[in-house]
Design a protein around this nucleic acid. Structure first.
Lengths: 217, 217
DNA sequence: GGGACCCTCCCCCGGCAGAGGGAGGGGAAA
DNA sequence: TTTCCCCTCCCTCTGCCGGGGGAGGGTCCC
């Protein structure tokens, strides 16, 4: 009997998972909870064999839970709507067996639970590809091709600054900033500064909320 | 009998909602689907009285669905994990009765469905507060000063498109787009298109993940 | 020392961006 | 009807943006 612990702050999702898993033979939902602290406590108390873990939760999030699980841990399946590559890789690095977006078909979830019970992994093609590329040493992070200086310039760019403003704030010549911007555009494969700014924001170089604020503020 | 259509690209969520609603007296799930196109088709075919609508979906998203629903529309409850204020307000502006984060307790969802059948609203305190403050004019919605056309242009802007591309996609003259962009800059109090794009992204006009994706979004 | 890469700055040049002004048509409200 | 706003398009003009070169100085490594 595979005993599953569901950790998700969305009650709807918990209900859905419980509903689906309860219909499966050889699988039972041992418990569920809505935050990281409870997840650790319930793991100790219930000793589930599999944990379905949401990454995005208030307070202690999924990555924190993965960090604090002891050696005698359940097989962890990360199930979240969060798509940032770095978080996916971090979760896998921290011992997650499977990583499934919440858009996954329920059959795949069941499949992942059964696989996890035997130490197996179920990965979405995109994430599998990510791992393969990473294994090959390729960089999924588009920003990793940038030099430190270029990253600085892109940061300013993502804040909505003009070349002259960037030049002033970095104590550079206007021409120098132009050079950096040009190579940033080439490296990121975009056509103008606005698109580059969007990439910078997507990669979290600047929190979206702070994008237009003053650098000091 | 309240007939509900569930629109969500997450199968787990659909199952959860169906499970919960099927247990309620006087409520039945008329159908479910995973994208905006199907939502419109099923609305015509099934004539549900209530629609539970996810905002974030591939292809036509929830806001598009709201825009394209005819006058004879079901009561729409927006149920999503997306918290951007502007998208919330835009959804309400477009006729959504209730707006519930997916973290909502299932009882509240049921409550919202029953309320919606009578034209009532169930709002989270935070969102209610947002509406009240907005009503008081405390934090004027930066996008509310824009005309519909300008908002369309800003959306394209936030996707990183150039004036020519915007002109082509909206079937306009390049000059017209320039006019719109100029008034957008003036109204938003920013100096260039990149800053305008950032405002658009901050206000949730375009989900950050989709900002650089294909032309016909 | 030579190579590779980074950072810095320079030139020319085409082109889009953005400011400013003008103008016609249409719809809604006074 | 008049007025006002929105949408559409046109023109000029300034200037920044971005492409394509080139070039000197710095470090690090072979």
């Amino acid at each position: 009997m595979i005993r599953v612990l569901i950790v998700d702050d969305h009650e709807v999702v918990r209900q859905g998972l419980r509903f689906v898993l309860d219909q499966e033979d050889g699988v039972e939902v041992a418990g569920e909870c809505a935050n990281g602290e409870q997840a650790l406590a319930l793991t100790r108390a219930l000793r589930p064999s599999v944990m379905l873990l949401d990454l995005v939760m208030p307070g202690m999030d999924g990555l924190d839970v993965l960090r604090r699980l002891g050696d005698d841990r359940p097989a962890v399946i990360v199930l979240t709507s969060f798509h940032e590559d770095e978080r996916i890789l971090e979760a896998i690095r921290l011992g997650a067996l499977s990583y499934l977006p919440k858009t996954t078909a329920v059959d795949r979830v069941v499949e992942a639970v059964r696989a996890a019970a035997h130490g197996g992994s179920v990965l979405e093609p995109r994430i599998a590809g990510l791992l393969v590329r990473r294994m090959r040493g390729e960089r999924p992070d588009p920003l990793s091709v940038l030099t430190p200086r270029e990253r600085e310039v892109l940061t300013a760019l993502a804040r909505g600054r003009s070349n002259v403003e960037i030049a002033r704030s970095l104590s550079l010549g206007r021409e120098t900033v132009k050079t950096h911007v040009s190579s940033i555009l080439a490296k990121l494969g975009v056509t103008d500064r606005t698109q580059a700014a969007i990439v910078g924001l997507q990669q979290g170089l600047v929190p979206l909320d702070e994008a237009l604020l003053d650098p000091d503020g």
